[in-house]
Write a protein that binds this DNA or RNA. Sequence first.
DNA 1: CGCGATTTGTGCACCTCTTCACAAGCGCCT
DNA 2: AGGCGCTTGTGAAGAGGTGCACAAATCGCG
Lengths: 230, 230
Amino acid sequence: MPALPELPEATVARLPEYLRALHAIAETGHETVSSEGLANAAGVNSAKLRKDLSHLGSYGTRGVGYDVALLIEQIESVLGLTQCRSVALVGVGNLGHALAGYDGFASRGFRIAALLDADPSRVGEEINGLVVRHVDELPRVAVEESISIGVIATPAPAAQAVADQLVAVGVTSILNFAPCVLSVPEGVDVRKVDLAIELQILSFHEHRKASLTALPGGLAATDTQEAIGT
Amino acid sequence: MPALPELPEATVARLPEYLRALHAIAETGHETVSSEGLANAAGVNSAKLRKDLSHLGSYGTRGVGYDVALLIEQIESVLGLTQCRSVALVGVGNLGHALAGYDGFASRGFRIAALLDADPSRVGEEINGLVVRHVDELPRVAVEESISIGVIATPAPAAQAVADQLVAVGVTSILNFAPCVLSVPEGVDVRKVDLAIELQILSFHEHRKASLTALPGGLAATDTQEAIGT
DNA sequence: CGCGATTTGTGCACCTCTTCACAAGCGCCT
DNA sequence: AGGCGCTTGTGAAGAGGTGCACAAATCGCG
Ligand SMILES: NC(=O)c1ccc[n+]([C@@H]2O[C@H](COP(=O)([O-])OP(=O)(O)OC[C@H]3O[C@@H](n4cnc5c(N)ncnc54)[C@H](O)[C@@H]3O)[C@@H](O)[C@H]2O)c1
Ligand SMILES: NC(=O)c1ccc[n+]([C@@H]2O[C@H](COP(=O)([O-])OP(=O)(O)OC[C@H]3O[C@@H](n4cnc5c(N)ncnc54)[C@H](O)[C@@H]3O)[C@@H](O)[C@H]2O)c1
């Protein structure tokens, strides 16, 4: 059993990006990669990458770099991806359909194990070989499929109720697409994806850039680092 | 012209959340709101909220709170949402369809002004009153519709090429759904949304929680702050 | 076998962000 | 008018993250 390495949250958020980059590098046939090379592929600073990897007691070789296969194994192990995790998707509407048909989950260690909706007219529909079931069946489904992550793609007003139902059946990780805050008991992790927020942040920078160029003879030595980190 | 207030990036990222919360509060009929109340609605610490708002030279009243309507106006002004921004969506596949049919954009100050795809069989299709056009028409469309933000929803291998095309026609803000890093010239902002990354982060915490509970008589006084920030 | 080229791992300084705690300000009630 | 309770705005301390710069380690080659 690997002693829990107490990773910084910022590092955890970057590990999946490294993993993706590593898989891409592995496909090109390279057996090792330098911190510089991997950092470029992942879009980060090489020093940051080295520090991140050092936190998981890394297996790099000075003068050579990192063994790609070994590093993939290490990161997957730390992220808990050695076992395939089952996901329940609640709300099979516009967005839910896209998610249900997305093959990028399976290829990265996740299995959509259940599709759930409250609308009776949607129940029974088959998407990608999976039948939509009624959300009331959640307790049974959760056990049968040993769900470990819940994804909420319902309208915002229904999201809190769905979250409560997920928590009630023992789900402790939720990915929320509805634009609202969820209140959950301690010990439950919620992550949120909100498109409108992303666009509004872009809008701000667009606005700022416009103001800057509109300024009279603004000195060109203003700070202009771009490509914001996630 | 409002002097640029030099906002911290972390604050900018939270302003849209405050804005959403404010709109919700406005609908309940409240004319003012305390930092405590707004902070709850937005899912943040009240001290953080006050500091954030103080950065935009805020208009709160001690002993009373913030004027909801005024604050909405202020934040929208700072985010550059006073003008409706036009968005071009490139890649009208699985995910693109969902985005094209999403009404959450219009309601928050954005207008999907163009749908573009490279697949000839998709060109001409009408979605939500908008006709899919060929991606080669981007230069003309960008000017006609005065596009200010580009959204990439193509497969990863095509994303960089699409980004280059967007940059070429003058787009300086890009929202990327493809799981890859984009390289863009200085002055262009890129934000990324990657579902698999979100799930993997959740997986990590799930993994960690499992290890903790599996530990023998671990003292209950371990840190257990949850509900991670975006 | 030793040397130079290369690359990792990390101490350190800097910076940003968070959180606490409280003075200053405002309105209301007497 | 004055006092009291409530709420904002902010200084300061602390926590966390970033990036530089370099010593330590390893490999390949002569
Ligand atoms: N469509 C997008 O591109 C998009 C983008 C970003 C965010 N979102 C958000 O994702 C959510 C879903 O968007 P959508 O466009 O798919 O909406 P939608 O209306 O098309 O789909 C919502 C689905 O949820 C189901 N539902 C409603 N209440 C439910 C409940 N209590 N339990 C289970 N299922 C329930 C409905 O029957 C429907 O099928 C919304 O909150 C939206 O704001 C959507
Ligand atoms: N479907 C999802 O739920 C989902 C979730 C997260 C991320 N993503 C990512 O979003 C992207 C799109 O996913 P999808 O499921 O919609 O894929 P998709 O294959 O259904 O759609 C991709 C579309 O992009 C078009 N396209 C390809 N090359 C193009 C080019 N050069 N210019 C313009 N258009 C081009 C294709 O014709 C197709 O219509 C992928 O990168 C995927 O990884 C999808």
